[in-house]
Amino acid sequence: MSAVPARAVHGDERTPVERRLRELLARRSVLPGVIESVDAGADLWELGMESLAMVGVMVAVEDEFGVEFPDELLTRDTFRSLAVITDAVVSLTREEGPA
């Protein structure tokens, strides 16, 4: 939870991550026809994402960005929207990567 940064501060970092994330989920047919254009803040659960699909998303995001979510971030809340996943990825890559 502490790993989620204030979004406004890191706006430039977030845009490419969010785009890659959206493309990744589209490739994996998560909410097909919806994910391509949905608002980044939209609740993916309300849009019909299912629990088992979420595990696939977790694995795909870790592989795509070369990060490993600590268990406390492996929750429904972290994977609620493109924006929240992006925040988590940005924060993890900053911790782990060369920055």
């Binding site: 629990s51 088992l52 595990v55 977790m58 979510f69 268990d71 492996l74």
Partner: peptide
């Protein structure tokens, strides 16, 4: 089946 999927991202608590 569910736990097999979850095991793919399991880490220590």
């Amino acid at each position: 089946a569910i736990n097999a999927e979850l095991a793919l991202v399991a880490r220590d608590r």
